[in-house]
């Protein structure tokens, strides 16, 4: 494996362009979690505008804009302690499957200038195209490694849309040396596309 890179958030365009598939990257700084409900909400309310903003939508939008500009969105539905007391601590916080956000992710990256998407399982063509254009990268965290990853979350700064439920809310977290591997880069390379093609050939051979 290539040498380990340590990067601070937000990510510069130059540092993103310098990342290649296969590199290990440790991230430090502030990032935002967001998964199914958050992606649908962003798309419907602010990008495709199929629903009008309600309640705290506009306030939340204003608050997340600077966080996502050059920033990272983490596909994660954490286990959080201290919810009743609003003294939030991440107990378990591994990645969730990213492909569910494929219909939305590219447009969301372009709209908010998101330069990094963290998740598991990889994403498809639309996101890969957005990685080239914005530019951005897809960073793979180890699925299921939730207790370990939670240790790199040093503090919960804020939570938005807690009415989506704990897993679906958008948590603003400070991380230190958050471990990832680049599996899709801004130069059109995708480890996932590569492995899918290779394993497809192997399957064809097994079918004879």
């Amino acid at each position: 494996m290539a040498a380990l890179k340590a990067l601070r958030l937000p990510l510069s365009e130059e540092s993103v362009r310098g990342l290649m598939v296969g590199e290990s990257v440790r991230l430090s700084g502030v990032m935002l979690t967001g998964r199914d409900a958050a992606h649908k909400w962003m798309i419907d309310t602010f990008i495709r505008k199929t629903r009008a903003p309600l309640d705290d939508d506009l306030e939340t939008y204003a608050a997340i804009l600077p966080l996502l500009d050059g920033g990272v969105i983490y596909h994660c539905g954490p286990v959080v302690a201290g919810v009743a007391e609003q003294d939030y601590r991440f107990v378990a916080a591994g990645p969730t499957t990213s492909i569910r956000e494929e219909p939305y992710q590219g447009e969301i990256m372009a709209h908010f200038n998101i330069r990094g998407v963290i998740g598991k399982g990889g994403m498809g063509e639309k996101t890969l195209a957005a990685c080239g254009a914005v530019p951005g990268v897809y960073l793979h965290a180890v699925g299921g490694a939730a207790s370990l990853i939670a240790q790199s979350v040093k503090r919960v700064r804020e939570v938005y849309k807690l009415d989506f439920g704990v897993p679906e809310a958008m948590w603003v977290i400070e991380v230190s040396d958050f471990p990832t591997v680049v599996t899709m880069d801004s130069h059109g390379n995708s480890l996932h596309a590569e492995v899918a093609a290779r394993s497809g050939d192997a399957l064809a051979a097994l079918f004879g």
Binding site: A92, G144, A145, S147
Partner: peptide, 16 residues
Amino acid sequence: QNVALSREKSTPICQD
């Protein structure tokens, strides 16, 4: 590593 840590700290192996 995560398996060992989860057992030691009695925290969920996976957040899901």
